[in-house]
Design a protein around this nucleic acid. Structure first.
Lengths: 232, 232
DNA sequence: GCAAAAGTGTTGTAGTTACACCCATGC
DNA sequence: GCATGGGTGTAACTACAACACTTTTGC
């Protein structure tokens, strides 16, 4: 199966897995999708979505493969977070894991597939204790998501096609766990010129109604200045 | 050798290596240490320092092990950068590599050890073409170093015990590949209160002489606000 | 005295924060 | 008419960039 010139080093070969912190946004809350583990050790406990990295497959491909099997989605937003390799991190054996976070829209038709796997969305506050070092992985993923969110408006992959600025602001409130000033947030976001206002209004949240916005096509306006100045 | 409950998945085991981008600062230049590769493929070409990750060893331990073998240094500053896993990235076989960058003081007694390995320091401009995807790794490491350098003053691990502000500024010029204003840089750095002025002056660079500074002990003054505002 | 680097001071500007305040509408 | 979220305006503050200017000393 492996016919490489490194075959003399076979004794150094390692188990490599990927773990995915799957973020979604629902009911004004940032949520993480976790699973009841179906193999030993720790069978039945909550864990992140994971899987083995096959030979002749990149870790990102592996992450996409396990995500696709779970959700049926093809074009998930993925970002590599960190690689964990403490030999004792998994009591079942020495496993190196490469961590990714994924952003998905909860309203996607994925939901039925997800339920088949006994998976469940939890808000950050309600997240149960996870196996191994997965709690640390969630924390790391959130930090990386914050960093990313301060360099670009992240909502494109988490929000539905059209959304109000209040909803986008609330997403940012959730990600950074702090309250952004409504007026200032609005001005900042609009100054970036990545959103386009629609004529339609959302009348469900207020009497006056709030205009829907949508993202302009990706290439039109890019920027590199931080949206959120303060470091994480 | 491996008696884990994952043994049924043996066919998924992978070669895992670490690669280190070793940064040093010498003659007012930020330099990278590279090696003439001593195994096939690409024997004799320039590459980063790398090595296999042994079973029951973390990737960081592996990085420290190969660095220690090379330099004899024990307390090297290491930061994980990224994990590369494209199956075809190494023509010798499918190898997943975890990248770290290291900061070392070139004046350390390490130099003789280094020479034994046919290693050589190159400035960023003079860096030769490296094997595989190592050019990308250097670029990634530099980006990570910039990010780090904008959240803390990085010189502690690159500069000698005492140094002038001009020297520190030049290090930052090198890292960010731009010219910082002498006056503004001085004010910014001193406002962070992490440096302590010594009575001694360096008379080699100017008639007037420039005060030496040294870092205060690590815990005294920490900060999280970016030193360099602009994103990388 | 003048060149040259070290070090200090000043001024303008851009981005942010903390608000006050008006708007539209369902009840 | 009033409560409520939507949306706009503004003044104070802060960080920074640009650059003038002063200091010291070897030549």
């Amino acid at each position: 199966m492996n016919t490489t010139i490194y075959d003399q080093y076979q004794e150094n070969k390692r188990f490599v897995s990927v773990d995915c912190v799957i973020f979604g946004y629902e009911q004004e809350q940032l949520k993480v999708l976790v699973f009841q583990r179906d193999i030993e050790p720790s069978k039945g406990e909550w864990s992140l979505l994971g899987g083995w990295v096959h030979v002749n497959e990149s870790t990102e491909d592996a992450a996409r493969r396990v995500l696709n099997k779970l959700t049926g989605l093809e074009d998930v937003y993925l970002e590599q977070v960190h690689t964990f390799s403490q030999p004792d991190r998994d009591p079942g054996g020495s496993v190196i894991t490469v961590e990714y976070y994924a952003l998905i829209k909860i309203d996607d038709k994925a939901s039925n597939l997800i339920e088949d796997y006994g998976a469940k969305w939890f808000s950050l506050e309600e997240l149960p204790k996870l196996i191994f070092d997965h709690d640390v992985l969630v924390k790391k993923a959130l930090e990386k998501l914050r960093l990313r969110s301060s360099y670009e408006i992240i909502g494109r992959k988490l929000l539905p096609e059209k959304f109000t600025l209040t909803r986008l602001r609330n997403l940012y409130n959730q990600i950074f766990q702090r309250e952004f000033d409504p007026g200032n947030f609005r001005k900042k976001i609009l100054s970036l010129k990545v959103l386009e206002r629609l004529e339609e209004k959302d009348m469900s949240e207020s009497k006056k109604g709030a205009f829907y916005f949508k993202f302009k096509p990706k290439n039109e306006a890019e920027f590199t200045d931080p949206i959120v100045k303060r470091s994480i």
